[in-house]
Amino acid sequence: MEAWKLRPARDLGLKPAERLRSLGREPGLIGLGINAAWRRGVRAYLRACHGFRVEGLENLPPGPPFVMVANHASHLDALALSAALRGHAARRAHAMAAGDLFFANPAVSALSAYAINALPVWRGRSSRGDLDTMRARLAEDHLVYILFPEGTRSRSGSMGAFQPGLGMLVAGTDIPVVPCWLQGAHEAWPPQSRTPRPFRPLHLRIGPPLRFGQVPAGRAGWQQVAAAAEAAVRLLSSERGPLNEAP
């Protein structure tokens, strides 16, 4: 028999505003309920207004933890990736969102935290401690991270280079990285537009997971992970399939 283990919430003792922006935020019944309702709403909107289609669902690992990486062209990206998940994985999914945009003030933070289930990433000033927390939580709390390793939305729609931060999370672990290619998001909600533009198709292709258990944790290893993930996403974008057929 194991000794009894009591694990208080990671965000225990934080003031409400701090808690929203904490990487240790763990949702309770209210958070789960709001997130589930939001996810269903988003899924219905994407289906109705963007004809959202997902292929390669069978490539998703059977359960958390795993990391989904995709090209980033629009605010719809994180919503579309989380809408593709179901059940346990969907409830555990956290999108990594730019802190300066999605956690700018308490009202926006509340929406990002409760509805989107986002965790803040502070561009250019993420501390080593933040990354350690994210890395620990991914494995210990069995989470799903939705990550856009380009670091920012592509203004042109074409994919940029992947940053090595992804490698810091998964190098030397058995946590699978699932490459995803999202087609049409740039047209459906361009970075220059304040609102999405309905009736532009949105397609998601999920590729077979990559594992980086043998890759050493270190700068070279992180670069290697980023390069491999980028290559896998680029490969998905060029594969023949319903995505690339003329409408």
Partner: peptide, 12 residues
């Protein structure tokens, strides 16, 4: 939240 029971959704 203090005891961690909140992670047991059904019991909560």
């Amino acid at each position: 939240r203090a005891t961690g029971l909140f992670r047991e959704r059904l019991l909560s």
